[in-house]
Amino acid sequence: MTGRPGPRRHLALIGLSGTGKSTIAPLLARQLGRTAADVDRLVEARCGGATVAEVFADRGEPGFRAVESEVLAEVLAGPDAVVATGGGVVLDPANRDLLARTATVVWLRADVDALVDRLARTAEERPLLAGDPGTTLRRLAAEREPLYDEVADLVVDATGLRPQQVVDQIERDLRAGGTEDDPR
């Protein structure tokens, strides 16, 4: 974790696919009196309504990541928001630098087995998890966890927690850790 000094306007949620970033962001935003932004949904809108899976199929991962970086930069240049990022947003060093400079970053962690179980109950197609999600998530965790740790101000274990419990834990940690003077 970074423990960076200085005020940052946004709250950004990072973590593996299935940790609840897209669910938590609007709940946390409402509780803190902010707006919410979901980078994956904004990428889909930018790409004419194509799903993330369709963008991956059409443009490949590098094409998706380029649009993702553009959208992230636009969101973080805008009004204060709680931002749900995509799980791979940390792969680009420029994205990590931008997050570190402009956002209080909350890493949502969860046990991989719990993520596999959670993702098996959703209909959303996740292109990087096709085939064997458990093996893929373990590989992605090994690759990405050092990058999540590099930019995270807070780490919240979301394993077994309901969304509102995660929101409440984030708010408590923000207040206790002094990461923001007033998270509202």
Results as ranks from 00 to 15, higher is better:
Gly88Phe: 09
Val89His: 02
Val89Ser: 11
Val90Arg: 03
Val90Ile: 11
Val90Thr: 11
Leu91Gln: 10
Asp92Pro: 10
Pro93Trp: 09
Pro93Asn: 09
Pro93Glu: 00
Ala94His: 12
Asn95Tyr: 06
Arg96Cys: 05
Arg96Ala: 05
Asp97Ser: 15
Asp97Ala: 15
Leu98Cys: 02
Leu99Asp: 03
Arg101Ser: 14
Ala103Asp: 04
Ala103Met: 04
Thr104Ala: 14
Val105Tyr: 00
Val105Cys: 01
Trp107Cys: 03
Trp107Asn: 00
Arg109Phe: 09
Ala110Thr: 10
Asp111Val: 03
Asp111Ser: 07
Val112Cys: 07
Val112Gln: 07
Val112Leu: 03
Val112Pro: 02
Val112Met: 02
Asp113Glu: 15
Asp113His: 04
Ala114Lys: 05
Ala114Ile: 02
Ala114Pro: 01
Leu115Pro: 05
Leu115Arg: 12
Val116Asp: 01
Asp117Val: 15
Leu119Asp: 06
Ala120Arg: 13
Ala120Gly: 10
Arg121Lys: 15
Arg121Asp: 09
Thr122Gly: 08
Ala123Gln: 08
Glu124Met: 05
Glu124Gln: 15
Glu125Arg: 15
Arg126Tyr: 01
Arg126His: 15
Pro127Thr: 04
Pro127Arg: 09
Pro127Lys: 06
Leu128Gln: 13
Leu128Tyr: 02
Leu128Asn: 06
Leu129Ala: 13
Leu129Glu: 01
Leu129Phe: 02
Leu129Asp: 09
Ala130Pro: 02
Ala130Gln: 13
Ala130Trp: 09
Asp132Phe: 11
Pro133Val: 00
Pro133Met: 11
Pro133Ile: 01
Gly134Arg: 12
Gly134Asn: 09
Gly134Trp: 05
Thr135Pro: 14
Thr136Tyr: 10
Leu137Ile: 05
Arg138Gly: 04
Arg138Cys: 06
Arg138Met: 10
Arg138His: 04
Arg139Asp: 14
Arg139Asn: 12
Leu140Lys: 08
Leu140Pro: 07
Leu140Ile: 07
Leu140Ala: 02
Ala141Leu: 05
Ala142Val: 11
Glu143Trp: 11
Glu143Gly: 10
Glu143Gln: 15
Glu143Arg: 04
Glu143Lys: 13
Pro146Cys: 10
Pro146Ala: 11
Pro146His: 13
Leu147Gly: 06
Leu147Asn: 00
Leu147Pro: 02
Leu147Asp: 04
Leu147His: 07
Tyr148Trp: 00
Asp149Glu: 15
Asp149Ser: 13
Glu150Tyr: 02
Glu150Gly: 06
Glu150Val: 08
Glu150Thr: 08
Val151Cys: 01
Val151Lys: 02
Ala152Trp: 00
Ala152Phe: 02
Asp153Ser: 07
Asp153Met: 09
Val156His: 02
Val156Gly: 09
Asp157His: 03
Ala158His: 08
Thr159Ala: 03
Gly160Gln: 14
Arg162Ser: 15
Pro163Phe: 00
Pro163Cys: 03
Gln164Tyr: 15
Gln164Pro: 10
Gln165Leu: 13
Gln165Lys: 10
Gln165Val: 11
Asp168Pro: 04
Asp168Lys: 03
Gln169Leu: 13
Gln169Pro: 00
Ile170Pro: 05
Ile170Lys: 05
Ile170Val: 12
